[in-house]
Simulated scan of single mutants.
Amino acid sequence: MHWLYLAIAVAFEVTVAIAVGKAEGFKNRKWTAITLLSGAAATYFLSRALLKLDVGVGYALWTSVAGVGITAIGALFFGQRLNLNKAIGMVLVIGGVVGLQLSGSA
Score class of each variant (00 low, 15 high):
20 V>K: 00
60 A>G: 02
30 K>H: 04
78 F>K: 10
51 L>F: 12
91 V>A: 15
33 A>W: 03
76 L>N: 07
51 L>D: 12
19 A>G: 12
30 K>A: 05
73 I>P: 02
81 R>K: 15
79 G>T: 05
90 M>K: 06
85 N>L: 15
23 A>S: 03
46 L>V: 14
30 K>Q: 00
88 I>V: 14
44 Y>H: 03
86 K>N: 00
65 V>I: 07
71 T>W: 13
62 W>L: 13
35 T>A: 07
50 L>T: 09
60 A>Y: 02
33 A>G: 11
82 L>S: 04
55 V>L: 12
91 V>G: 06
91 V>C: 09
66 A>E: 06
86 K>C: 04
62 W>N: 10
22 K>C: 08
65 V>R: 10
75 A>R: 14
50 L>V: 11
34 I>D: 12
73 I>A: 14
84 L>M: 15
18 I>W: 09
61 L>G: 06
54 D>A: 03
37 L>F: 15
19 A>R: 13
77 F>E: 13
71 T>A: 15
76 L>E: 05
41 A>L: 14
45 F>E: 08
25 G>Y: 13
57 V>I: 13
26 F>V: 09
62 W>K: 08
64 S>P: 00
30 K>Y: 09
50 L>M: 09
51 L>V: 15
44 Y>E: 09
63 T>S: 02
52 K>P: 08
